[in-house]
Simulated scan of single mutants.
Amino acid sequence: MSHIRSPIVLMYHGTPSETPESVYSIKSNLFAQHLRYLQKNDWTTILFKDLATPHSLPEKSIVLTFDDGYKDNFQGAFLPLLEHNMKASWFITTDCIGGHAQWLGKISQQSQMLDATQLLEMHSAGMEIASHTCSHPDLSRLSYDQQFAEFNSAKKILENLLSAPVTSLAYPFGRFNANSLPAAEHAGYSLACTTRPGWFGSENNPFLVRRIAIFSGDSPGILARKLAYADNDVSWKKIVSYYTGRVLNKLHAKVGID
C-alpha cells in the first residue's frame, strides 16, 4: 500500500497455544501467521530502543512489543521469531518474574510469567528486555516519587539480571500523568510508550511513543489494515467513513465551502 509509513509499533500481550483468556492475547498459531505476513511483505523487525535513531532505520521498519512478560511468549513468540530471523521487545513487570500476573483477576496457566532464565536466553538471542515497572500500578494515581521508585527499581533489577543497560519503558495499562515523563527520564530511560494508537513520530516526545494494539481475533488481513492506518479500529465501516470524509473535504476545498 503506497500510504504505509514506518517505523510503526505494535503491542502484543500473551501468545497461548489455546484460546486466549484475554482479548489482548493472541493464539500462537495466529501470531505465526502475523510473522509470515510481515516477512512476505518485506517488513524489517527492529527493537524498541532502535527508535532513538529513527533516521538510520530501513524502510518498512516495525517494532513488535510484548507487555507484561507472559510465559507463553517463550514458545508462542520468542521461538517463532528466532525461526524467522526476527526480533522483538518485551516489557517486563519485575515483581512477577517467574510468578503470575496478579492484575488479571484470576490465576491460570495464561497468567504465568517468564522466569529469569528465559529472559536471559531471550536477551542473549538479541531480543530487547525492557521495563514495565515493578508492580504494574496505575501510574496516573501515583506521585512523582512513587513513580520514580517503580521506574528506577525495575530498571536496576533488569540491568543486574542482564548485565546490560535497560533504556525502554512501557506504562502499565497505558496510564500516566504529568509526573510520569520526568520521572522516567530522571530514572535513566530514553524512550517510553503508551497505548495510544498512531504513527511513530506523531508525538514529538520520546516518552509518548504510540502503539497499535493487537487483539485476539486480528487476522493477517486486519493486521495489514492496522499497518496501513495506524489505528486500533480498522473496521470497514470506519475505513469507508474515513475515505468519504476525505473526498468531501476535497470537494469542499475545491468549491470554496468552509
Score class of each variant (00 low, 15 high):
Ser2Ile: 02
Ser2Cys: 03
Ser2Tyr: 04
Ile4Gly: 01
Arg5Met: 13
Arg5Phe: 08
Pro7Glu: 14
Ile8Ala: 04
Ile8Leu: 13
Leu10His: 03
Tyr12Val: 01
Tyr12Pro: 03
His13Phe: 13
Gly14Glu: 07
Pro16Glu: 07
Pro16Ser: 08
Ser17Val: 00
Ser17Phe: 08
Glu18Ser: 11
Thr19Val: 06
Ser22Gly: 05
Ser22His: 15
Val23Asn: 11
Tyr24Pro: 05
Tyr24His: 08
Ser25Leu: 10
Ser25Asp: 14
Ser25Trp: 05
Lys27Phe: 13
Lys27Arg: 15
Asn29Ile: 12
Ala32Arg: 15
Gln33Ala: 02
Tyr37Cys: 06
Lys40Val: 08
Lys40Phe: 11
Asp42Lys: 15
Trp43Ile: 14
Thr44Gln: 14
Thr44Trp: 06
Ile46Asp: 07
Leu47Glu: 10
Phe48Lys: 03
Asp50Val: 05
His55Leu: 11
His55Met: 06
Ser56Lys: 13
Ser56Asn: 07
Leu57Pro: 13
Ile62Thr: 03
Leu64Gly: 01
Asp67Ala: 14
Tyr70Trp: 13
Tyr70Ile: 03
Tyr70Leu: 10
Tyr70His: 12
Lys71Glu: 15
Lys71Pro: 01
Asp72Ala: 00
Asp72Ser: 05
Asp72Phe: 05
Phe74Val: 04
Gly76Tyr: 04
Ala77Trp: 09
Leu79Trp: 12
Leu79Val: 10
Pro80Met: 06
Leu81Met: 13
Leu81Trp: 12
Glu83Thr: 13
Glu83Gln: 15
His84Phe: 02
Asn85Arg: 04
Asn85Asp: 07
Asn85Glu: 14
Lys87Val: 06
Lys87Gly: 06
Lys87Ile: 04
Ser89Pro: 14
Trp90Leu: 11
Trp90Glu: 08
Trp90Ala: 04
Phe91Ile: 11
Ile92Thr: 01
Ile92Gln: 03
Thr93Ser: 15
Thr93Ile: 13
Asp95Cys: 06
Cys96His: 13
Ile97Leu: 14
Ile97Gly: 03
Gly98Pro: 06
Gly99Arg: 04
His100Ala: 08
His100Met: 11
Ala101Gln: 08
Gln102Pro: 03
Gly105Gln: 14
Ile107Met: 06
Ile107Thr: 11
Gln109Lys: 11
Gln110Pro: 07
Gln112Met: 10
Met113Phe: 04
Leu114His: 00
Asp115Asn: 13
Ala116Asp: 12
Gln118Ser: 12
Gln118Ile: 14
Glu121Met: 09
Met122Tyr: 02
Met122Ile: 01
His123Gln: 10
His123Val: 03
His123Glu: 11
Glu128Thr: 04
Glu128Asp: 01
Ile129Val: 10
Ala130Phe: 04
Ala130Trp: 03
His132Arg: 09
His132Thr: 10
